[in-house]
Computed example of a mutant assay.
Amino acid sequence: MDKNELIQKYFEKSLSPEEAAMFENLLADKEFADEVAFQKKIKKVITHEERATLKDKLRTFENQKTSTDKWWYAAASVFVLLGTAIWFMGQKPDYDTLYASYYETYPNVIAPVVRNNNDTITDTEKAFAYYEKQDYNKALEIFQTIIRTSPQEEYAQFYSAISYMELAKFSEASKILSGTNWSKKYADDAIWYLALLELKTDNPDASRKFLLEASKTSRYQKESLELLKKLD
């Protein structure tokens, strides 16, 4: 069984006796134990935020109502909030909507750096000119040419993946994002976009795995924790 699936079942309290024994044995592995501890921390943060939100709502009700109806109004509100929460827990998240809410086209941060002062237009400049015009097919053609002639140009790989995502060619994007040994410059971005890609293609378990990784970074921590909360 996949380790992430085992951890998920642990938190859902649905481990079989055999799986529970496997889980206990894996805790001897520091990397596995650290991952379990990290996910526990995330769940505590999410639970704390939910409780804080409920307390804030009740505090607002207290300030707004008179002394004679405060208690009844607050009690009714608690039942409504709990009922709503239970109803939402039983609903499958709308992955397309979540994807659209969090996906943003990665900005062009390359062409201004390599732009020169003569009349020669480089392939890089051509590619990003199309990219910024949202002509992703033509941009992709040039990015692929750059990859063939200069495979060390990592930006061409990354922006090819983003272009594929813009064209809804998610399989091709996934091959690049998951199959490239990214440098530190693009590693965090690749994990974040992989999380979104898995969400778009209805693979929430895989998306959670990448979101957990992305939540350990400073750049995507806030968004990753928000999405993890919405997927639970």
Rank of each mutant, 00 (worst) to 15 (best):
K40W: 13
S163P: 00
N181V: 07
A75M: 01
E223F: 12
T66Y: 05
M89D: 14
Y102H: 10
K222F: 14
K229W: 01
N137C: 04
I42N: 00
A187Q: 13
I162L: 10
I142L: 09
Y155E: 05
L194D: 11
E213T: 07
Y186R: 11
G179C: 10
A111S: 14
K222V: 13
Y10M: 11
K200N: 11
Y73T: 13
I110S: 11
S171M: 07
E223W: 12
A20H: 09
W71N: 09
L194Q: 13
A76F: 06
N118P: 04
F170C: 10
S215Y: 02
L6E: 14
K92A: 15
Y106S: 12
Q144F: 08
Y10R: 10
K222S: 10
A20N: 13
E31N: 10
I142G: 01
I121S: 08
N137Q: 14
D96Y: 05
D123C: 03
W192A: 00
N108R: 04
L197T: 05
I121T: 12
S150C: 02
T47C: 04
V78D: 07
E223L: 12
E213I: 09
K175T: 08
P112C: 12
K216N: 11
T217Q: 04
K43T: 09
D94P: 00
G179S: 06
M165A: 03
S218L: 10
Y155S: 02
S101W: 06
V109E: 15
N108E: 05
R219A: 11
T217N: 02
L231T: 11
F128I: 06
D189F: 06
E198G: 02
K92Q: 15
L82Y: 06
S150W: 05
P107S: 10
N116I: 11
L177Q: 01
E154K: 04
P204A: 14
Y159L: 11
W72G: 05
S67M: 09
F170I: 09
Y102L: 07
L167M: 14
T201N: 08
Y159R: 05
K216I: 09
K13A: 15
S14V: 07
E223Q: 14
E198W: 04
A187W: 05
W72T: 03
A33C: 06
E35D: 13
I191G: 00
T60N: 13
N116R: 09
P107K: 07
I42M: 00
K229C: 01
Y186N: 13
T180M: 13
L54H: 06
Y164F: 09
F61E: 14
N117T: 07
F158G: 01
A75G: 00
Y103D: 10
K230N: 03
S150E: 15
L27H: 03
T84V: 07
A156C: 02
K9D: 15
L27Y: 01
L231G: 13
R51L: 13
S183T: 15
K200M: 12
Q91W: 04
S207T: 00
N25L: 14
T97I: 04
